[in-house]
Nucleic acid binder design. Structure first.
Length: 671
DNA sequence: GCGGCTTTACG
DNA sequence: GTAAAGCCG
């Protein structure tokens, strides 16, 4: 028997449950499908593609050593390409590992549906997380809504994460003769030169990931606790790109780090113990990003909390440009942005500094910043990216307070006390004494002259002073509360006028220069296969486990639930991903006519389609319907259903109502 | 060792 | 903003 093993972001042969399943059951066809257009705006950036290219090539050599090779396919429809591979190789099974970003949730469900319809046995596995999102629930069976409660539970689960598995000793290859690889172009000519530098600093690939893990555990891990807040990042693990592409299993990381911790604990090495706790917390945040994405599949484009819905974001492309170029006049921010541009890397601490500056001082819409991180980071990761920006923007229950502005000058002396980081990335400030390095605008003229600095000329004055930013933020909040109150009054009067003029951040388009990049790529890579009509792809299923009685009343028989439970450890319960949508908005709005009210479709893939093609308006008449399938009830939704953020995060929304104790309310009330 | 003040952390 | 930790007399 032959199985297709579909590699995605699990580019390793070790501790890879899908590959192991394939090897166990007979002959293996290993395949990677490159179909970036399926991810809409989130076409991978230059450095991310560079990494992927190297990683795939190393995976291929490992597979060749074991007895097969990696088939690569260029596609605009992963699922149909998989079906082709299955048919041309005579495979009967498909195995893959779970992903939790919104695009994958939808695509993978569709893969299961279509391949199953074609008589293929499809099995999927957990390879990316310590625990599946649907395993980690509070005492009421609800998902956690704060990180610390989530992570506490993860560390106290009644069963351990699965121990990592060894790589297979050999692989029996399926028949590849009728399934040739496509050549995939990961970089264009203009990118090749910049990419050449990356190889000096980074070594992608699963075996290199293992080396990086060992190096970290035997070196910087011990002092992680004391060093972790220094901008000069020689003390971080550098594992994030490896983890993003699944070159090393997070379970292996967890296992090895925990082992070290026990060792240190026995030696009475409390500093080492504490370091491990802190490092594991960052692993936990990665887990939590998947958890959030799974439970709230729109978190990459819509705030989880709706209290900033009427915030007047400053839609200013010049600000945005100054931030990207590292010309804001704040040395720590600028050094970070230059480092990011030059290397695709940024210490976590500095990510917080630059993104907080972006949101609080510049008051730019957070999705622009998130998109820029996506485009430029070597470890660009949609779920982590979204979690980070929502945390900074104050749209999570456990976010930073929105009305507090961090001061880059103070942060500078804390994270870069000697100014070495700033001097490395801002050569124009290299000769400035440490006393002034994080606030050159206060330096006496003779000091500046001696350092060869002319503010406003070879280094900018602050783009906005912190005091101005503080008062501007207060004004903006006042404006927001006013607008919110007006809207509420209008709603209570029963008229709908005045609803249209709020500038919701989800409606703010990406700036042109960012979009052009995407559009060019989309056009350039267009193959003969037409892009499918989008609605076809938007059908998540109810295969599963977490269906609760109150959600589905009479329509879900207890048989369905019991049946689903049997499988719950291995299969993604795609209903859970819709839990939010199902429980409140969809049920509430069933039967309502959204029609023109349903405003713009906000799901990125739709926007991308609309931008790049004359697709016929998505027929976004936003129907919510249920249909029978496989003896179970399958809710069908289209993105326009939930495009109205009112239905997801509005003040009458479930997420807020369930957490009345959370501090976001203070914001609204102080107004 | 204690109280009171300052600093730091806060996902 | 609050609470814990660190520091000092």
């Amino acid at each position: 028997m032959t199985s297709v093993v579909w590699f995605r972001r699990d580019l390793r042969v070790e501790d890879n449950p899908a590959l192991a399943a394939g090897v166990r059951s007979g002959k293996v066809i290993a395949v990677y499908v490159w179909a970036p257009e399926e991810e809409g705006h989130y076409y991978p950036g230059r450095v991310s593609r560079w990494w992927l290219k190297q990683s795939l090539s190393l995976l291929d050599s490992s597979l060749q050593n074991l007895g097969t090779s990696l088939i690569t396919k260029r596609s605009t429809d992963s699922v149909l390409s998989l079906l082709d591979v299955v048919k041309s190789t005579g495979a009967t099974h498909l195995f893959f590992n779970h992903l939790y970003d919104p695009f994958s949730l939808v695509r993978d469900h569709r893969a299961k549906e279509i391949l199953t319809e074609n008589g293929i046995v499809v099995r999927s596995f957990n390879a990316d997380l310590l625990y599946e999102p649907w395993e980690v629930l509070d005492d009421e069976g609800q998902p956690f809504v704060t990180f610390s409660s989530f992570w506490d539970r993860c560390l106290r689960m009644p069963y351990d994460p699965q121990p990592p598995q060894l790589p297979p000793k050999r692989i029996i290859s399926g028949d590849l003769s009728r399934c040739p690889s496509d050549t995939i172009i990961f970089e264009n000519d203009s990118e090749r030169g910049s990419n050449a530098l990356l190889a000096r600093a980074w070594s992608p690939g699963w075996s290199n990931a293992n080396k990086a893990l060992t190096t970290f555990i035997n070196g910087p891990l011990l002092d992680y606790s004391t060093n972790r807040r220094k901008a000069d990042s020689a003390t971080t693990s550098f594992l994030s790109p490896h983890l993003h592409f699944g070159e090393v299993s997070v379970r292996k990381v967890f296992h090895q780090v925990r082992t070290k911790q026990i060792l240190w604990a026995n030696e009475g090495n409390t500093a080492g113990e504490e370091s491990v706790n802190l490092f594991l917390k960052s692993i936990g945040l990665r887990e939590y990003s998947r958890y959030m994405s799974f439970n709230h599949p729109y978190s990459h484009e819509r705030p989880l909390l709706g209290h900033l819905k009427f915030f007047p974001w400053i839609v200013d492309e010049n600000y945005f440009k100054a931030w990207r170029q590292g010309r804001t006049g704040y040395p720590l921010v600028d050094a970070g942005m230059r480092e990011l541009w030059a290397t695709g890397w940024l210490h976590d601490r500095i990510r917080v500094v630059v993104s907080s500056f972006f949101v609080k001082v510049l008051q730019l819409p957070w999705r622009w910043g998130m998109k820029y991180f996506w485009d430029t980071l070597l470890d660009a990761d949609l779920e982590s990216d979204a979690l980070g920006w929502q945390y900074i923007s104050g749209t999570l229950p456990d976010s930073r307070e929105f009305d507090r502005i961090d001061n880059p000058q103070i942060e500078g002396y804390s994270f870069d006390p000697n100014g070495e980081y700033v001097r490395r990335w801002l050569p124009e400030l290299a000769r400035l004494p440490t006393e002034w390095i994080h606030h050159p605008w206060d330096a006496p003229e003779y000091v500046l002259q001696a350092a060869g600095i002319e503010l406003g000329s070879n280094y900018p004055l602050p783009i906005v002073t912190i005091n101005a930013a503080k008062s501007r933020l207060q004004e903006a909040l006042t404006h927001m509360w006013q607008h919110e109150a007006n809207t509420r009054a209008v709603l209570e009067n029963g008229t709908e006028e005045g609803l249209g003029d709020s500038l919701e951040d989800t409606l703010i388009a990406f700036p042109q220069d960012m979009q052009m990049e995407l559009d060019q790529e989309t056009v350039r890579n267009r193959t003969t296969t037409p892009i499918r009509h989008y609605e076809d792809q938007m059908v998540p299923s109810l295969t599963s486990s977490l269906l609760r009685v109150e959600e589905d009343e009479d329509e879900s028989s207890s048989d369905d639930r019991n049946l689903a439970h049997d499988n719950s450890r291995a299969e993604v319960p795609t209903d859970a991903m819709n839990r939010e949508l199902l429980r409140e908005p969809i049920q509430r709005e069933l039967g309502q006519d959204f029609g023109a009210q349903s405003i713009l479709p906000q799901f990125n893939m739709q926007i991308a389609l609309r931008n790049s093609e004359d697709s016929p308006a998505e027929s976004s008449s936003a129907t919510t319907s249920r249909r029978e399938r496989d003896g179970g009830v399958v809710p069908v939704w289209s993105p326009a259903n939930s495009s109205n953020s009112e239905s997801f995060v509005g003040e009458d929304n479930s997420y807020l109502q369930r957490h009345p104790q959370l501090n976001w309310r203070q914001l609204s009330q102080t107004g």
